[in-house]
């Protein structure tokens, strides 16, 4: 399965987190917000001019900068999504 980072996936399609490739406090924080392996994630939209991303992870919506989103690896969710 191809791995895509969260900043590069198509908007509006269901993906799931595979790993957070970032050590330190920011990585810890992302995991605490629910970016754990298998968690459903979706890119909702990108702010214009290289601005932040709006993403849905599990049941809530978050905005984060593209550079930070690059640390979050995802994989396409199985079409018949049975997560959770």
């Amino acid at each position: 399965m191809a791995s895509h980072t969260l900043d590069s996936i198509p908007a509006g399609e269901p993906f799931q987190v595979t790993r957070v490739a970032l050590a330190g406090v920011l990585g810890d924080r992302l995991v605490e917000l629910g970016f754990t392996p298998g968690a459903p994630v979706q890119l909702l939209r990108r702010a214009p001019f290289g601005g932040p991303l709006q993403v849905q992870v599990r049941d809530f919506v978050l905005s984060l900068r593209r550079a930070d989103a690059r640390a979050i690896h995802t994989a396409q969710a199985i079409p018949a999504n049975q997560a959770a």
Binding site: L26, R29, Q54, F60, V61, L62, S63, L64, R65, D68
Partner: peptide, 9 residues
């Protein structure tokens, strides 16, 4: 600080 901002409903 990184922007990690919840967008509440």
């Amino acid at each position: 600080a990184p922007l990690l901002l919840e967008m509440p409903p």
